[in-house]
Design a protein around this nucleic acid. Structure first.
Lengths: 185, 185, 185, 185
DNA sequence: CATGAATGAGCATTCATTCAT
DNA sequence: CATGAATGAATGCTCATTCAT
């Protein structure tokens, strides 16, 4: 693993554990096992670091999740597949997911970073639009529906992380059912 | 308005705008129009300030919301009443609501503060239990259902705050319908 | 005891225990059982307080000690009497003595305060001069001899305070003998 | 001179002039000609600084003084040699000596620091014990005799510092004679 | 006289960032 | 590229002092 990567991994861990401001650049470089100055070789400043970390994490998640997306599949099946994929990625990448979740509303994550990301989820957005047009999705403002889905997703993941569930697959299935019963047209 | 209140109001605003750590005590006292030292007359330190602010805000919300709670009312009617009351309180007290929302998971809010609050919502919790027992609420783990309701609530409020909706009442009604369709047994 | 006195007593105790700077005016008024502002009714500021305390303590000691001074007595007998009187006053007024001792070289005790005090010991100074003139005291610079006596005195008192001595009177007598053997002409 | 040394020298000067508490860390770094933060690169905090300064000063004095110590020499000659060496070291290192003298009883100098030092003077203590056993030193409690010697030493040094003496060597010799006449068995 | 709420200058300490090596 | 000593602006907090009551 090269030094840039070591720094990013250390940053993710510390940002999640202690928050952005409470994490000193020195503690990051210490954990990463590199010199103080090295962080600034790869990132112009602390802010650019967190944006880079956010971007890479979210891209990783996006790539992983979008593999299950099937353009030809049925709307509801597709939504469930993607939704479920996010849950599983989160459970297997707790640190990254918590990081993304905690910092998605942070003022330190710039607009540019957010826009750069949205592209990855364009396909999902399209699928939702078609869902509405074909009368399979409740006809509320699409952005609102997306927000509902995301918050339901996060609530479910958080619950799974904090509680030991025996049959995760079953839980995830009923969790999705609750969502779908709400937003089905 | 006495100085303690001025400080609390200034703190709410700045904590929401810039976060806890990024808000200097000096900026709070400046905005409040009091001397630097005055903050420490009323609060032992910055941490005690944020806890006091959180406590008072949440109490205010609790008191306002629980007025609509009717022990004798029908389960679903009662849930809608309370849920809707939170939405309206949030819209009328944007700053306080955002503050509560942002800091509910903050490590700076102590456990004691959180416990002191939960009491106010005991009645709601009971109502939900009875809802499950009487077969009117989906039979998933109650804490999870509560979490779903809360996240749905927050998503709705956030959407309402960021978008100008013509008919808020109608919107709230259909938003609640989406929730209820999901969690009805 | 009037409030001025309460403040002085509290100040002596705290200054000795924690030092001048480490003692806040608030802690003094708290211990004295008076309001914060009251200190400044009687003393213009913290510095004037310590000077007043020093002055009064040293005057009290002077008055007590000079009672044993006998103009007509033999030089050596007189010196021993005064020297011994200081030792005993110190043992009976530990706080005051320690305070005087600690702050005699403090920059916070002004020159004026020191001069105001020296008057009380004028008689002793005269006695010493006569001792030298009559060839009973070593003929070194008088100020130096005085300094030697004072430091020997303080060393003896400190030792007595820190160690439990069975026969104090005997100890004091031999302590004085050591001094006298050194400075006798 | 490296920065750590510059800081120590500045600290000695200011601590002596104004006292520990009245000396701000900024004033030290200003006088030392280094940045504010540099002090904390070398010393964890202000307290560790004063302990380090005390330790190094006293070690320097100890090393210098103990050079004259001669295990095989006569008791009285040895005592005079060491005693005189301290006087001369003090006169040549006024700042350091005053610093040591003022802070030897300070609560800011930790016990560990004091213990680390006492070792250096172990030989002197042994010499004194042998002096008593061989009947050449007054048979009072040894700690008390040590205290007397130290206070006599300090009084002499202080006097020499504050007054211009023509023949210092002669003065020191008679000063030691006064001491020795007092404590000889 | 007595009070204590209010003040703001001052301080120890932290930390992102630089730069000479 | 990599380093870490050095920096100084920024911050939370203290405390002597004031003043309206």
């Amino acid at each position: 693993m090269d030094k840039r990567d070591k720094i990013i991994q250390a940053a993710i861990q510390l940002f999640v554990e202690k928050g952005f401001q409470a994490t000193s650049t020195t503690s990051i470089t210490n954990l990463a096992g590199v010199g103080t100055g090295t962080l600034f070789v790869y990132f112009k400043n602390k802010n650019e670091l967190i944006n880079a970390v956010y971007l890479e994490s979210k891209k990783k998640m996006g790539q992983s999740v979008m593999q299950v997306f099937d353009v030809d599949a049925d709307f509801e099946a597709n939504l469930e597949a993607v939704w479920t994929a996010v849950v599983h990625w989160a459970l297997q990448n707790e640190k990254e997911f918590n990081f993304i979740n905690q910092f998605k509303t942070s003022p330190h994550i710039g607009k540019l970073t957010k826009e750069e990301i949205d592209g990855a989820f364009h396909a999902v957005h399209q699928m939702m639009e078609q869902g509405q047009q074909s009368g399979r999705l409740v006809s509320l403002e699409l952005n609102y529906v997306m927000q509902l889905i995301m918050s339901h997703l996060n609530a479910t993941i958080e619950y799974l992380m904090e509680n030991k569930i025996k049959d995760v697959t079953a839980f995830v299935r009923s969790a999705f059912a609750v969502l779908m019963n709400g937003i089905r047209a």
